[in-house]
Simulated assay, not measured.
Amino acid sequence: MRLAEGIVIDKEKTFGVLKFSALRREVHINNEDGTVSDEIKERTYDLKSRGQGCMIQVSIPAAVPLKEFDYNAEVELVNPVADTVATATFRGADVDWYIKADDIVLKNKQAISHVKNQQPQPQNKGK
């Protein structure tokens, strides 16, 4: 069976609270001769997942700007998908799971932006 779009994830049930840790690695595109180019294909980040009880790695396309959030900042994934890569062995196959997403964003970014954009209201002291 092949799931062309991977397995769509219910973010809250699967990951619970996600906290940003760090950039884990950058994956570069290989040149035609097999050497590694300077062009980045994707970036993988370490995130702490309360739902999984451990650190998870999530890959984001290189077209998305580098994420440099504060350590332990609460984040969420945009359109996360789980997928697999299988490698044939003498006994069958080894299967590795991976998670990819369209982006990683701050969990309360909209709320913070909204508060920053509000102007203080003058208080009527009732004379």
Rank of each mutant, 00 (worst) to 15 (best):
T84D: 04
I56D: 00
R24T: 04
K13S: 15
D83E: 05
Q118F: 05
I112T: 10
V17Y: 08
P120M: 08
K13M: 11
R25G: 02
V17M: 10
K19W: 04
I112Q: 10
M1G: 15
P65N: 06
A88G: 04
E12A: 15
L3Q: 13
E68C: 07
K48H: 14
D102T: 08
G126P: 03
V81D: 03
P65Q: 05
K100N: 06
G6R: 01
E76S: 08
S113V: 10
Q110H: 07
C54D: 12
V58I: 11
G53D: 06
G34T: 03
K107S: 05
V8Y: 07
N108Y: 07
G16D: 09
Y45F: 05
V78Q: 02
D83F: 03
A62Q: 01
A101T: 06
A73M: 14
L77N: 02
H28D: 05
V95Y: 01
S21K: 15
V8G: 07
E5I: 13
E42L: 08
T35M: 07
P61N: 03
A62E: 01
C54M: 15
K109R: 12
T35H: 05
P120R: 09
E12V: 15
R91N: 12
G126D: 11
N117K: 13
G126W: 06
G126Y: 08
D10N: 15
V81G: 04
D70P: 05
A63K: 14
K11M: 10
Q52R: 15
D96N: 08
V75T: 03
N30T: 13
E12T: 15
V78R: 02
N30P: 09
G92W: 04
I60E: 02
E32V: 12
A82H: 01
K67L: 00
T84I: 14
K19L: 14
A4V: 15
A63G: 10
V81K: 12
D94M: 07
G53M: 07
D46W: 02
K41T: 05
E76C: 12
A22D: 14
S49N: 01
N30L: 15
